[in-house]
Design a protein around this nucleic acid. Sequence first.
RNA 1: CGGGGUGUGGCGCAGUUGGUAGCGCGCUACGUUCGGGACGUAGAGGCCGGAAGUUCGAAUCUUCUCACCCCGACCA
Length: 490
Amino acid sequence: MAKGLTKKEENYSQWYNEIVIKADLAENSAVRGCMVIKPYGYSIWEKMQSVLDKMFKDTGHVNAYFPLFIPKSFFSKEASHVEGFAKECAVVTHYRLKNGKNGGIEVDETAKLEEELIVRPTSETIIWNTYKNWINSYRDLPLLINQWANVVRWEMRTRLFLRTAEFLWQEGHTAHATREEAIAETEQMINVYAKFAEEYLGLPVHIGTKSPNERFAGAEETYCIEALMQDGKALQAGTSHFLAQNFAKAFDVKFLNKENKEEYVWATSWGVSTRLMGALVMAHSDNNGLVLPPKLAPIQVVIVPIYKSEEEFKLVSERAEKLCNDLREHNISVKFDNRDSQRPGYKFAEWELKGVPVRLAIGPKDYENSTWEVARRDTLEKSIVSNDEILQHIKNLLDDIQKNIYKKALDFRTDNTYKVDDWDEFKRILEISPGFIEAHWDGTPETEELIKNETKATIRFIPTNPELEDGKCIYSGKPSKFRVIFAKSY
RNA sequence: CGGGGUGUGGCGCAGUUGGUAGCGCGCUACGUUCGGGACGUAGAGGCCGGAAGUUCGAAUCUUCUCACCCCGACCA
């Protein structure tokens, strides 16, 4: 089975790479660090987009589009923001090419830009520079805008979907009249992300806040959803930032309140990216390939005909086409794989590799008995279902698969979450069976840094409503009131 | 940016002490097959990452260069 696919127990990162490539999700491009998202992968992303977009609209947001390029001067207006991104910015310095000496092409040095342009690593600066013109009164607030865009962060080391130099995402940027309202927005959006992750990706996530070390550059508070991958490493799947008045002050965005007094506006920003594709792969897939949650699978059901003669093909095709129509009427996406060039066994393996949730086979025997062979991707179980019941069976099965992969991921997380009070135990667990570790922390960035240097583990999140309990910091032994969650991370 | 590795048909690789390139997969055609990755026959496809050098002769040796991958530091 799964010919040529590395087993995840043997080499997890190679297993991941092979699934991404062999399942036709994406491939490396001719440009260093930049990937090509292939049609099958992109159609999953489109499904994510359409679900998220609706969730954003339902919470009152509208879409807009801001420029790819940001004047360098904008960037330096918010000090910690610049510092956070400076090391990974692509910069445009010239606007013209000319013919070179040896028939090649070279940069025309006479066409130097007066002011260099930064390719956006995120859009806070250009957006706040624009909002300044849009906001005058409390009547202009709240301003609730999202954009779907690409951004560039010049990463040293890249991995398909998880970290690429260019990636696709959405970034919401909102402006509010009060601190409370902005915080409520920040929390609302992290809850939207959590709901999306759990209900659609089938991925259980924790909601929490980031420690100062891990916080977004320019934010007062960063909320995150954090998931556990099958190798025991944590993956940040989405973030929502309370930006306080930092950008309003940097870009001088003020409004007149009801008392006719000038105030700086309060801001949030929030985003999820194509990194979610990586999360999807690493959360559910197995040694046979990708496992997709039905709600995001581009193809939910595939039908493989089995036949010897032309007549047999005709008979099973007729019944397959009929079922295709029925399924489509019930908004279930289905593919009838009637390629004559491949044999059934090949098709079975291929659709498993691509993670299609439900596979049906129909051959002469099934035709005669009025049955279907039904195989589910998550458990690899097969059953025989009568033609009368097949439609309802598939509907139930898709729901069941969606629930089951969530439960599997949740059980995995539960099994790999540890409460630890002893430093040696902390190190030992990270060594032999990584996962989430709940431990006490003295609240200082210095301690987090020391723990990171010694174990590579960082604080993934601080619970939003922690259970209060007196304890001692796992590293320094200083008093602590509640536990935070450590893990190695992507 | 440090440490390691790899560049040879579309993909994965072999190529010995230098003698002018081969295998598997895939692809094309035809036939037999078809309930878990079929087989046969016949084909197409590469100036061996690039440049310079050594040599009668370089995929192979030397120097330089470029690209990519993996492990670290940094990051969503």
